[in-house]
Deep mutational scan, measured.
Amino acid sequence: LVRYRTISKIPQITLNFVDLKGDPFLASPTSDREIIAPKIKERTHNVTEKVTQVLSLGADVLPEYKLQAPRIHRWTILHYSPFKAVWDWLILLLVIYTAVFTPYSAAFLLKETEEGPPATECGYACQPLAVVDLIVDIMFIVDILINFRTTYVNANEEVVSHPGRIAVHYFKGWFLIDMVAAIPFDLLIFGSGSEELIGLLKTARLLRLVRVARKLDRYSEYGAAVLFLLMCTFALIAHWLACIWYAIGNMEQPHMDSRIGWLHNLGDQIGKPYNSSGLGGPSIKDKYVTALYFTFSSLTSVGFGNVSPNTNSEKIFSICVMLIGSLMYASIFGNVSAIIQRLYSGTARYHTQMLRVREFIRFHQIPNPLRQRLEEYFQHAWSYTNGIDMNAVLKGFPECLQADICLHLNRSLLQHCKPFRGATKGCLRALAMKFKTTHAPPGDTLVHAGDLLTALYFISRGSIEILRGDVVVAILGKNDIFGEPLNLYARPGKSNGDVRALTYCDLHKIHR
């Protein structure tokens, strides 16, 4: 019993810090008490220290592992850092350059016999395009090294910054494609005289377009951006097909006994025919423009016929181009109408809503002055909100995010209106959640004399007048207030005048 009563005193000691020596009952000389009392004092002292730490809000209350900052290894790049964003855009520009100039170089340097010394005699450094290609190869190699040090988000939505895990993730992902696209074939085969082989191998750079397509997928929600990307894709495919079309004609031209190829026909049409040795002929500019003209006309199913396939190889390629053109029509131009419709969806919704308003007016036989006010209010409210119901949009977000959005939407009023000066951010967040926005066209009466005042109004834009009878008592403008002081009276009061809008007004109100 003594032991039980001794232990039962522990909660009292913990909360009230009572010393055991003052209790005459606990001072009985028993061996059990002498053993338990020192333990009680020690526990009391420890609990006292913990309570003191909690009340003082000291940093040592938290466990040590929670006080440590997340460790980022040296030379690790955050995937959302500004440097990584700028670097990704730079790589994107280099990939676009590669997609345009690599097929052009591979096709127009394929057994090209233009006048001038061969590239091997001039030297590697004197070729501007080769120098640019070398810079692109170096940048792609540097990009691989950067990807080995860039964080990523795993399946659990955690940012991984450990170098080993980053390397394994990159090896399992895009490393092989990036490595093949970054191989400097110019340096590996330079001086061997195989410019045709170098041009063909350099087309491996186009593998990076797969990554670019995935990154550009984030802009699919913007109709104008999608339309622009589709047109660029169409032009890029036409450019690639033009390079292939020229390569076919250029390879067949020296081996044909009869002059029936499209390059021969082009030379005869523009007065620059090929001679018996295969030299001469149109310039590279004429060849490229004509090839691009043929691919565009074939892809769009126009086909004027002034550039036509004559050999079997050219006919087979033309059939493939027609098939590609039909697929592009289905996948690209078939979506253009939907994209344009999405661009004008706001206008369509406006006309639909206006039609419903006019049908309501016609069905209920609203008189002319009231009908005009109804239409003007709808037009003004639509121009202010673009038909978007803010309350319906915010309803799907958590309250903390709703408060931040409301604070942002009402920031101008909260910053410049005098009653809100000096208020804490928590108070402003709470008030912003209570605001209701209303609009009024010129001549609209917001409050009639004798109406119950259940709200306090803040003028965000425009001006109003307060009338008693036919006498203008006051004219209020931006950041002015009218209405009933909230919670100042037990019952809502009545208006002693009319409140009429002089201009288009936007008002925020808080109800009782």
Rank of each mutant, 00 (worst) to 15 (best):
R342M: 07
V226M: 13
R205T: 04
I135G: 03
A99M: 01
E195A: 15
I270D: 01
Y344A: 07
Y293F: 11
W87H: 01
E376Q: 11
C427P: 05
S331L: 06
P118Y: 01
K434C: 05
Y246L: 01
Q379M: 04
F140M: 01
A403E: 12
S301W: 01
T352G: 10
L343C: 09
E252L: 01
S383D: 15
F304P: 04
R342V: 10
D268S: 04
R421L: 08
L90N: 01
P398L: 01
Q341M: 11
E376W: 09
L78V: 05
W245M: 01
S81A: 12
A224W: 12
I284P: 01
F190V: 14
G280R: 03
C243Y: 01
I77A: 01
H351Q: 03
D257Y: 01
M433I: 09
Q402K: 04
D178F: 01
G334K: 06
R362E: 04
S412D: 12
A381M: 08
L409V: 08
N312Q: 01
I244H: 01
L134P: 01
F296S: 01
S192M: 08
L209K: 01
C232R: 01
L266K: 04
R218S: 05
F185L: 09
S258Y: 03
H448W: 03
L109V: 04
T203N: 11
G164Q: 11
E195M: 14
C243P: 01
N154M: 09
H408Y: 08
S331N: 03
I332F: 05
P398E: 01
Y222W: 08
S383C: 07
F435I: 10
G173I: 01
M390I: 05
R342H: 14
E252G: 03
L428I: 06
D444K: 03
A182C: 13
T311F: 01
R421E: 12
G261L: 01
V160D: 08
Y97G: 01
S412Q: 12
T295K: 01
S220R: 05
P282N: 01
F304K: 04
E157D: 12
I324C: 08
E376N: 13
S331A: 11
V447H: 01
L110E: 15
W174R: 04
T76E: 01
F378I: 08
L207Y: 09
E314Y: 01
A99I: 01
L409A: 06
A224D: 10
T438M: 13
K418Y: 06
T76Y: 07
P282M: 03
G199H: 12
P309S: 01
I340K: 03
M251V: 01
K215V: 03
L176T: 14
T347R: 10
F363E: 01
N312C: 01
G396H: 06
A430Q: 11
L227Q: 03
T445E: 07
V132P: 01
D404A: 03
A130V: 05
